[in-house]
Computed example of a mutant assay.
Amino acid sequence: MKSRDKVQVTSDRGMLRLRWTYIDKRQSLNLGLENTRINRTYANGIARQIAEDIRCGEYDVTKNKYRPKLIGNSGLNCSELFDKFTTYKQHDLGISPRSVETRYIPLSRALNKWLDMPAHEVTKDHARHFMSIQSEHVTADTAKARIGLLGSCWKWAIQEELLATDNPWVGLRVALKPQPTQRVKPFNREEIKAILSEFRNNRYYSHYSDFVIFLFGVGCRFGEAAGLLWKHIADDFQTVWIGESVSRGYRKSTKTGKARTIVLSPNVQSMLKARYERLKPNLEDLVFPSPQGLPICDRSFRRRAWKTVLIKCGIEYRKPYAIRHSAVSHALASGADPISVAEQSGHDKRVMLESYAHVIQPQSVFIEF
């Protein structure tokens, strides 16, 4: 056999794969087997079978003849298969470490706890039962997202020939109805003034005063403000470019993947100008670093500074997200154009109108004749 016709046994991300040429076209076959000594010996046997069939004119173009009898049963249980999918998403698609930490690892643990069985044996009934358990332990939105991830995982595994079954997760997400949630209560003007005053005068947390002023004055997301660099602010301090975000120390694009330029109010302009003149920073420096000079951590800020200040002010606790919600609510209630508010705050226009329609002041929009 010519060298170009040789059936090669290769390893792809730790899994065995065969490669060869048939009628001048490159062919490949994922065996669904770990790259171990025993499995490699088995793969060499399949490679010899393919080569012999090509030579004798008995080649199976469907490749079914050469698939291992246990194709789709690589010995992986559900959590192990999902871990392989996670690795693929990290290496090939570049999902952030933050996503792995908050979405993928918790789901792997849930699989290990409630669906500890071989992945190829999972049926529609098993999938429904797991979905039911998730609905009891996490929010409807989280359960829906997890079922979606599992559907993507099984689809990938079938394409990679790690599974040879139908995808049991297809169509399950539609059965998960989001639970009604109470609207976030925005801070009123008096509460906002009290919060800003307490931050300015607090012995331990005055460092965050300008940061909180910016959040209330701009209505951006926490991570967008935490990741803001001086080069993102216009020389005249009238506008700021928002195109990046920081979460748990990792810099990435905004939630929507889109950049925007925000026109700043006179108060925010004055604060930024005074801060710049006081600090004399480099353009690559963070505008609002933590006391240690790092991006502000939302978790630490929420548990220490934010919670303490609200208690001092005697204000009902709400998560820092309420700052953004308050900024948008007051802008709309004051008669600002909803489309402009959506563009400036980085909201999806349709979602924003659905979420904030109740605060928009009704008024006649038609001209008189």
Score class of each variant (00 low, 15 high):
residue 114 W to P: 00
residue 365 V to N: 08
residue 40 R to Q: 08
residue 206 S to T: 08
residue 283 L to Y: 06
residue 167 N to Q: 04
residue 128 R to T: 01
residue 80 E to D: 12
residue 70 L to R: 12
residue 11 S to A: 07
residue 190 E to H: 12
residue 3 S to Y: 00
residue 194 A to E: 13
residue 158 I to A: 08
residue 340 S to R: 05
residue 268 V to T: 14
residue 234 A to K: 02
residue 53 D to S: 01
residue 50 I to F: 01
residue 154 W to K: 04
residue 336 A to D: 14
residue 177 K to D: 13
residue 125 D to L: 12
residue 226 A to M: 08
residue 331 A to L: 15
residue 79 S to F: 00
residue 323 I to N: 00
residue 291 P to N: 06
residue 249 G to L: 10
residue 338 P to C: 09
residue 298 D to V: 02
residue 177 K to H: 12
residue 263 V to T: 07
residue 1 M to Q: 03
residue 348 D to L: 12
residue 40 R to A: 10
residue 76 L to D: 13
residue 316 E to S: 06
residue 120 H to L: 04
residue 11 S to I: 06
residue 175 A to R: 05
residue 224 E to F: 06
residue 7 V to E: 09
residue 323 I to P: 00
residue 65 K to E: 13
residue 207 H to Y: 15
residue 289 P to Y: 10
residue 364 S to Q: 09
residue 17 R to H: 05
residue 309 V to P: 02
residue 300 S to C: 06
residue 156 W to N: 03
residue 52 E to R: 11
residue 2 K to F: 05
residue 227 G to V: 04
residue 73 N to D: 14
residue 269 Q to M: 13
residue 249 G to D: 05
residue 214 F to R: 07
residue 341 V to A: 14
residue 368 E to G: 00
residue 189 R to F: 04
residue 250 Y to L: 10
residue 98 R to Y: 13
residue 74 S to D: 13
residue 366 F to M: 10
residue 301 F to C: 01
residue 213 I to K: 15
residue 92 D to A: 07
residue 197 S to R: 15
residue 25 K to C: 04
residue 295 P to D: 05
residue 71 I to S: 13
residue 149 L to V: 02
residue 313 C to K: 05
residue 30 N to L: 08
residue 300 S to W: 07
residue 5 D to F: 14
residue 196 L to R: 11
residue 268 V to C: 13
residue 51 A to V: 10
residue 292 Q to I: 03
residue 277 E to S: 08
residue 53 D to G: 00
residue 242 I to A: 03
residue 336 A to P: 05
residue 152 S to W: 00
residue 157 A to K: 00
residue 195 I to S: 07
residue 192 I to M: 13
residue 132 S to Q: 13
residue 336 A to Y: 14
residue 322 A to C: 09
residue 283 L to C: 07
residue 336 A to S: 13
residue 231 K to C: 10
residue 342 A to G: 10
residue 357 A to D: 03
residue 311 I to S: 14
residue 39 N to K: 08
residue 80 E to W: 06
residue 149 L to A: 07
residue 271 M to R: 08
residue 200 R to S: 15
residue 264 L to M: 10
residue 206 S to N: 15
residue 310 L to I: 09
residue 244 E to Y: 09
residue 348 D to T: 11
residue 186 P to F: 04
residue 14 G to R: 09
residue 350 R to Q: 11
residue 3 S to N: 07
residue 118 P to D: 04
residue 64 N to Y: 06
